[in-house]
Design a protein around this nucleic acid. Structure first.
Lengths: 130, 130
DNA sequence: GGTGGTTTTGACAATCATTATCAATAAGCA
DNA sequence: TGCTTATTGATAATGATTGTCAAAACCACC
């Protein structure tokens, strides 16, 4: 029933490259990194692999303020959010239980069902604050 | 010092068209509406007017999940967030004091300064839930 | 009301990220 | 090994957004 999936070195390369980064990256820049590292991987493949990883839950994605799609290999399993340095990109994974509850409450209080939410905090990390 | 700004019927038309909508709209669709209404306004002008209104605080903007920039004329002054129906676009403005505090705490707990945050809740409104 | 200096507009080209196309390639399996 | 089919990748296509720049409009000021 479920779509069969094959293991290719390309998908593995994207997974690896992503896990070596500790910040959010765009498909474009990840592709550039891979190419710089000598890999002949195609751009479209990087896009497909990232989208796939995101769907499978192996990567998190968010929209940069400029509208670019950014991806990150996350270590925290399950639902969580991010605290991102807007200068250097340093990213910290955070859980936000109070926010989860709040979102639920606000949604149902207004008659909304099936709430999802986008919650990300941007700031300047300790190093970049100086 | 501050840049002088002139009043043109175009800027006014965009302001009006935006305030007549109670949901988030893209520059493209707002331009289409204006054109349909008989206005000969140019697309680039709509983009510029919306960006300008957003900067001046007369409009709020957010990125759709697809990466499009969406705008809305908000009635609630000051900082607030949105509860948006992902089906029909119905939007409710909400304040989120608990979230503001939480964001502050999380940021400083991790050494981050000048926290900003993106908080939006998507769901299905009462009508669309049926 | 007319005038001039500047801002703003708008048609169009240019960018840039992302997606579709589709023939060639490579997984996984009998 | 050979076959079936998912995947790849070069390239074209799409679509939103921004840059360009001459023409038009705005706004004091006369």
């Amino acid at each position: 029933m479920t779509a069969p999936k094959r293991n290719t070195w390309q998908r593995e390369a994207v997974r690896d490259a992503l896990s070596k980064r500790d910040d959010f990256v765009s498909a474009q820049s990840l592709h550039a990194s891979l190419r710089d590292g000598g890999s002949p991987i195609g751009l479209a493949t990087v896009y497909r692999a990232l989208a796939s990883l995101a769907v499978e839950g192996e990567a998190d994605s968010l929209q940069s303020p400029e509208g670019e799609a950014l991806y990150r290999a996350c270590t925290m399993s399950g639902h969580h959010h991010h605290l991102i340095c807007r200068n250097c990109g340093l990213t910290v994974e955070i859980s936000a239980d109070p926010v989860e509850e709040w979102a639920q409450q606000v949604a149902s209080a207004n008659g909304f069902t099936e709430p999802q939410h986008v919650v990300d905090v941007f700031g300047l990390c300790a190093s970049c604050s100086r």
